[in-house]
Design a protein around this nucleic acid. Structure first.
Ligand SMILES: O=c1ccn([C@H]2C[C@H](O)[C@@H](COP(=O)(O)OP(=O)(O)OP(=O)(O)O)O2)c(=O)[nH]1
Ligand SMILES: [Mg+2]
Length: 428
DNA sequence: GCTCAGCAGTC
DNA sequence: GACTGC
DNA sequence: GAGC
């Protein structure tokens, strides 16, 4: 646990102790919880960078988050900074992402148990306010600062004197704040998916509904429910979405609308609803729900996107980009660019299944559960060792490593062809 | 010094 | 075009 | 913030 206790509720799945493998006790040096204290502090640092906002804050946030993940995945308990310096020298791939700035924080952490940068930020009362305000949906770094400038310091202030300063969406999120800030157990996400499915089926029999996001990645708790819908097998499109939302509102399941995207049904186009729902009966909390509809030919790209994680998506899209492709929730297209700017987009590759998108990109299939930033337990089934070493060969664990790996292969391929394979090239 | 995903709604 | 969200 |  972080030295400072009071900084935010953490995702219960992160840094959670898994007892799947007996070989690892919680206190041994090679346990899954290795370096979790330092990692937690780096994550706090990441969060505070995001809260403070300003230029490049999102990249600083990811920089610290990534560093936390690197440390977690290391598989070895670090007890002093020299160990990391040695790794940087001899096995730099293993600590890729720990740059000068993070190393500086880590050295004071291993020497005195504190990160100076973090201490500074946590001591700032203004940042504490900004953080609380930003926990309300549609209140980001800029809006929070504006509110602060007008004397708003708390959720209560927001309710009593700040309502008129908020967008319609932010007002709704504020009105449900206490409910929707809580993550729900996955069983409840399943119940919500079931309600949407039931109503969807009644409108369009055979329609396929699937909860994606953190639910599909197997998380024990979910921040919201991300329901994806496609037409029945053998059918390309359906106009059911407008009716579905209408019915879910009528039945009282959907209590609030935040945004509707895509407008009324147009053949071949996706539609999406973002809002708040509540299961019937007493003792239920309001929950955030996202419902999306995609025609069948886009569905593979849509599930891939909607399953995430967001980090995984960014990573995969970067990978596509390097290959001259553009990946989105609606397709995978070859693009022509002139110094970074897109000048032509070809029609999308056709992918019927999620697997086909991986194949089209030359990537190995990854189970949804293995699409998180942190993958503590991957490839651990033999009961020993870390996640990266298997039968003497380095197995890529993160997409970044996979990227690096493939870049290397690509480079080798090109170099080889330079010298020998001019003929072979022509055949293709 | 440049890049970091790609898209959509609201204001 | 900036902000916010997925 | 990190990598190139
Ligand atoms: O910046 C983002 C945010 C989300 N997504 C995709 C991946 C993500 O998994 C899905 C659903 O978003 P959500 O915010 O619900 O994330 P989650 O992965 O489901 O986590 P949570 O449990 O917090 O809802 O949309 C992105 O591609 N980019
Ligand atoms: Mg979600």
């Amino acid at each position: 646990m972080a030295v400072k206790g009071g900084f935010g509720a953490r995702n219960p799945d992160v840094g959670k102790k898994r007892h799947t493998f007996h070989c690892q006790s919680t206190t041994t040096s090679r346990g899954h919880a290795a370096n979790s204290e330092a990692a937690n502090m780096l994550e706090d640092l990441a969060k505070l960078c995001a809260v403070r906002g300003g230029d490049g804050s999102v990249f600083k946030e990811r920089g610290f988050k990534n560093a936390a993940g690197v440390l977690r995945r290391l598989g070895v308990q670090i007890t002093n900074i020299q160990q990391l310096k040695d790794l940087r020298k001899h096995e730099p791939q293993r600590v890729r992402g720990l740059g000068d700035s993070v190393m500086k924080e880590l050295s004071t952490f291993y020497e005195e148990g504190r990160m100076h940068r973090l201490d500074g930020l946590e001591a700032d009362p203004k940042l504490k306010c900004l953080k609380i305000l930003q926990e309300v949906g549609w209140v980001g770094a800029v809006k929070a600062q504006q509110l602060y400038d007008k004397g708003v310091r708390s959720i209560e202030d927001l309710r009593t004197k700040g309502l008129h300063l908020l967008s319609e969406q932010a007002q709704i999120c504020l009105s449900r704040h206490e409910d929707i800030m809580q993550r729900m157990p996955r069983s409840e996400a399943a119940e919500i998916e079931a309600v949407v499915t039931k109503v969807a089926q009644s409108i369009c029999p055979g329609v396929i509904c699937q909860a994606c996001g953190s639910y599909r990645r197997g998380k024990s708790h979910c921040g919201d429910v991300d329901v994806l819908i496609r037409p029945p097998e053998g059918q390309e499109d359906s106009p059911m979405f407008d009716d579905l939302i209408k019915r879910l509102v009528e039945t009282g399941f959907i209590t609030d609308k935040l945004t509707l995207a895509g407008g009324p049904h147009r053949p071949g186009k996706s539609q999406s609803f973002m809002g708040i729902c509540k299961l019937p009966g007493t003792g239920r909390l309001h929950r955030r729900v996202d419902i999306k509809f995609y025609p069948t030919s886009l569905f593979a790209f849509a599930v891939l996107y909607f399953t995430g994680s967001s980090h995984f998506n960014r990573s995969m899209r970067s990978f596509a980009k390097i290959k001259g492709l553009k990946l989105s929730d609606k397709g995978l297209c070859r693009v022509n660019t002139v110094n970074g700017e897109e000048v032509h987009r070809f029609p999308s590759y056709s992918c019927l299944r999620e697997e086909d998108v991986f194949t089209a990109l030359g990537l190995e299939w990854r189970e949804p559960k293995d699409r998180d930033g942190v993958q503590v337990q991957a490839f651990c089934s033999k009961g020993e060792g870390g996640a990266t070493e298997l039968s003497g060969r380095v197995v890529p664990v993160t997409l970044e490593q996979e990227q690096q790996h493939q870049a290397l292969l690509e480079q080798e391929r090109l170099e080889a062809s330079d010298y020998e394979d001019a003929e072979l090239q022509q055949q293709e």
